[in-house]
Design a protein around this nucleic acid. Structure first.
Lengths: 167, 167
DNA sequence: GTGCAACTTCAAGCCGACTTGAGGTCAAGC
DNA sequence: GCTTGACCTCAAGTCGGCTTGAAGTTGCAC
C-alpha cells in the first residue's frame, strides 16, 4: 500500500485529533501499543489508522483494562486488515463479560447499602456492608475478616452482648 | 467512658481482625482516618469501634472513593455515638448516587459494545465506541476528539471517501 | 529480670500511567 | 539560508495508596 504524505500525521496533529497528549503517544509507543513511521530526520509520522487504534485503547481503558491488558486485546485483532465480525466478537465479548462483572459487583454493593439505609446501625454483626467478601470478590483489596469478632482463630471467645457502639 | 484492657487492641491484632496491614493502619492514622490511644511506652491501642470504622473505609474504597473522600464521608458521621438513621442516610444516599452513576456509565459502554459486535467494523464514522464522550463523562481521561476527521479546527477539509482501513 | 516478638519512627521504594524538563535537532515558510 | 515552532531523547518527577527496611524500643511470658 502506498501512502501519500497526507496520510501521515506528525505527533502534534495526532495528539490534537485524538485528544491524547503527545507524551502519552510516545509512551504508548514504548509499550508497543502503537507504531509510527519515521522521517529521515527521525520524527514520527503516524498512519491515520492509528486514530482508530487510539480510540480502541481509550475505550478499553474506560472499561478498566490496564495498558498491559489493552496490549493483549490489541494482539487479538488482525494487523493487516480491519477486523471482521468474528475477530471483533472475541474481543468484544470478553469486554462485555468484564463490564457485567463490574456491574454485578456494584449492584451487590448497592443492595447492601440500601439495606443499611433502613437499619442505620452499622452493627458489626448485622450490617451487610461488613460482609462484602463475596467469593467472586471482583477487584480491590477486599475486606477479609471485617466481621471482627468472628475472625479466624478468634483470640477471645464470644461476641460481647450488644452495647451502644461509638465511632 | 471507661475502657477495660480487653477493649483495646494492639495494631497487630487490629490488622489480623480487619485484614488490613499494620502499615496501612499507620498510614490511615497519618491521614486522620482512624485514631489510636497510646500506651505509656508509645504503642498504639485501638478501640474496638475502630473495626467498624475500618469496615466503613473499605466499603467506601470499594465504591471508588479516594481516601480523601473517605475522610469527608467519615466527617459526616457523628464522633460520639453510632449514627442514627438520618445521619447514616445522608452518607448512604450519596454513596448510592455514586454507584448509580458508575452503573450507568458501564451500561452505556456495554450498549455501544453490543452494537459493535454486530457491525464488526470499528468504523471511525459509524462505530458508537468512538463516541464515548458523553457530556456526563464519569471518571477517566475521556476520549475527547476521537472522531479524528471531525476534530475541532480540522486542518484538512473532508472525511476521505471510505476506504478499507487497517490496524 | 531476661528474652524475644511485637511494636516504634522515618525515609525510601513501588506500581501504573503519564508529565515535565533539559538540552538538542528537524522541517517548513519566508 | 534563516528563523522558529515542532519535534527528538532521556532522566526524573507526580500521584495515590500503600509496602519495605533500618535502627531502635516496649511489653508480656517465663
Amino acid at each position: 500500500m502506498t501512502l501519500s504524505t497526507r496520510d501521515l500525521l506528525p505527533i502534534g496533529e495526532l495528539a490534537a485529533r485524538s485528544g491524547i497528549a503527545a507524551s502519552a503517544l510516545r509512551y504508548y509507543e514504548d509499550l508497543g501499543l502503537i507504531h509510527a513511521e519515521r522521517t529521515s530526520g527521525g520524527q514520527r509520522r503516524y498512519r491515520r489508522s492509528t486514530l482508530r487504534r487510539l480510540a480502541f485503547i481509550r475505550a478499553a481503558q474506560r472499561i478498566g483494562l490496564s495498558l498491559d491488558e489493552v496490549g493483549e486485546s490489541l494482539g487479538r485483532l488482525p494487523v493487516d486488515h480491519v477486523p471482521n465480525a468474528a475477530e471483533w466478537k472475541g474481543v468484544a465479548t470478553s469486554w462485555q463479560r468484564r463490564i457485567d462483572q463490574q456491574i454485578e459487583e456494584l449492584e451487590r454493593l448497592k443492595a447492601k447499602l440500601t439495606g443499611c439505609v433502613g437499619c442505620g446501625c452499622l452493627s458489626l454483626t448485622r450490617c451487610g456492608l461488613y460482609n462484602l467478601d463475596d467469593a467472586a470478590g471482583a477487584a480491590g483489596p477486599g475486606a477479609r475478616y471485617l466481621l471482627g469478632d468472628r475472625a479466624p482463630a478468634p483470640p477471645r471467645s464470644q461476641d460481647p452482648p450488644p452495647r451502644p457502639p461509638t465511632y
